[in-house]
């Protein structure tokens, strides 16, 4: 049994890239502004997945750091978004 994880990683990275393109096309088509916000979700999951796979495929370990940073920024901006969403005046303020 001789498995080449690097080659598999490269193939799957390309496969995920095709997924990302199809999903982005769908998100851009709308029809509501909320649909277009789906692009923000896609980079946090599929984008990060592509980066870590490429890190192993090409032996560029630094791409793992890029993925980690992207995930961290996605988490921070997501929380900022959500906080705005549930702190509208006259609604429940969920701060502790």
């Amino acid at each position: 049994m001789n498995l080449d994880i690097a080659t598999l990683s490269l193939g799957l990275a390309i496969f995920l890239l095709l997924n990302l393109i199809a999903a982005l096309w769908r998100a851009a088509r709308g029809p509501t502004p909320a649909d277009r916000m789906l692009a923000a979700l896609l980079f946090g999951s599929t984008g990060v997945g592509i980066l870590v796979l490429l890190a192993f495929a090409g032996g560029h370990p630094a791409l793992v750091d890029v993925a980690l940073t992207l995930a961290l920024l996605a988490a921070i901006s997501g929380i900022a978004f959500a906080q705005r969403a549930w702190q509208k005046p006259g609604e429940e303020d969920d701060a502790p």
């Binding site: 916000m37 923000a40 979700l41 946090g44 999951s45 990060v48 980690l68 995930a71 961290l72 996605a74 988490a75 901006s77 997501g78 929380i79 978004f81 959500a82 705005r84 969403a85």
Partner: peptide, 12 residues
Amino acid sequence: LALIASAAVGYS
């Protein structure tokens, strides 16, 4: 991190 991001963005 990715879970936090998608829970928060998904909720928004």
